[in-house]
Design a protein around this nucleic acid. Structure first.
Lengths: 230, 230
DNA sequence: TGTACATCAGTGAACGCGCGTTCACTGATGTAC
DNA sequence: TGTACATCAGTGAACGCGCGTTCACTGATGTAC
């Protein structure tokens, strides 16, 4: 077993990072489906078989990129989040961080929130990284509704048991009426971001920043983060 | 020029349809990025070069599939839409038709609303087909707000000029306060559908039908399709 | 109605390319004693 | 501190595969007169 600080170990970390960086560059240029081990190796001045010392297959490289993308997005969102601020402000900040990251990294965004890559299914290793933004949103809703004074959205009878299960599974301490609204708002947030990143707003929305800000403000209302009727 | 009803003309229509059908089948099996002219030809018992009599290139075949997908989705939505019904009911019906179509045709859905295919940009020919669902939603909002009695969403000052431009461009006769809310709801609808189709709701939402119905009901409120405060 | 010519669908071979993965190997770095 | 052995990164050739597109061709279908 090699020493954690041997030259070999350091080199391994560096080369692994270089491979991922180059792969990310190709992702940005060509998209996930055209990501090729051979092209990555070529660009790094290595022979393609050398990459197999670092990633056992192309899919493993893809998985590493996916986890990195989720983590990078999660970090942006967490950095934008000030948990001493007003819940509504926190909500807006997280949403804008997601949008900003997506616009800066459109292909990495497509990798994690676009069409699934055919023939590839993400292993469970990706789950913790994928959950980071969701956990932030859950935390905001929890904090907001711990105090008094905020109206809650309505919860139809048909969704009550669904909401109970969700609360137990991943959103304890969030009022039942809020849980399903929160999941819906989460999906809707990505609808707004995807339409902008994937070009569906072309020749349609011009002041995207203002449009987005207003739309996620309305989403916050739907989750009961504003005074007044939800 | 050939007679519209000659055997040759009929054969051409049939073969063109057969090519598209087989291409759709491969789309469903492999995704757009792996759609291959050679594989389509092989499956049809033709030689690959023969396809060039029907589509000048792979991208043209893709374009045809994209237009067909938009049209198929648009038809489903239009068929589900009863323009004598209550606006709220019409809204729900169209949203559910979109969801239903997407779940039945996940790869065609990914083709039009997933990550863009790298190296491919859709020509303007796709625009009319792509607009069909949007036009339905615009029509519903227009009809609903022509009568009195429905409260309108708020429109912040910063979005007024944006809303005016949108109204002129594609939504005349829709109140300004409703236009931006409508565009946002449109994007959010696809956020809900995409998350379900692309598997983001796995181990999260179980009663998807009920969840969706409630969520798009809330969207309808945001566009002011329900009595009471928007 | 019959003939001469034009149109067009489909063939088969070829071009040039890129891909993921395996394998036996060399030589440098690290480890145990 | 020096030596013998084990580990591991990287090489280079090869396997077997698939792709989009072009081109000269054959033979059947359609058209004009």
């Amino acid at each position: 077993m090699s020493t954690a600080h041997g030259a070999r170990a350091r080199a391994r970390i560096e080369v692994t990072a270089a491979i991922k960086d180059e792969a990310r560059r190709q992702l940005a240029a060509e998209g996930a489906a055209r990501l090729s081990l051979r092209a990555v190796a070529r660009e790094l001045g290595m022979v393609s078989s050398a990459l197999y010392r670092y990633f056992p297959s192309r899919d493993d490289l893809l998985t590493a990129l996916i986890i990195d993308a989720y983590d990078s997005l999660g970090e942006s969102a967490e950095a934008a989040h000030d948990d001493t601020a007003d819940p509504f402000e926190r909500w807006i900040a997280v949403c804008e961080a997601v949008r900003g990251w997506a616009l800066e990294h459109p292909h990495e965004y497509a990798l994690i929130y676009g069409s699934p890559v055919p023939g590839y299914t993400a292993p469970d290793t990706t789950v913790p990284a994928a959950a980071r933004v969701g956990l932030l949103l859950i935390g905001i809703a929890r904090d907001a509704h711990q105090g008094p004074g905020l109206a809650r959205p309505s919860l139809p009878d048909g969704l009550r048991s669904e909401a109970e299960r969700m609360a137990v599974d991943f959103a304890p301490d969030v009022p039942l009426e809020v849980v399903t609204a929160l999941v819906a708002a989460w999906a809707q947030l990505y609808g707004l971001v995807s339409f902008e990143v994937f070009g569906q707003f072309n020749r349609m929305v011009e002041d995207r920043e203002a449009f987005f800000r207003h739309a996620v403000g309305q989403l916050a209302r739907g989750v009961g983060l504003m005074p007044g009727p939800a």
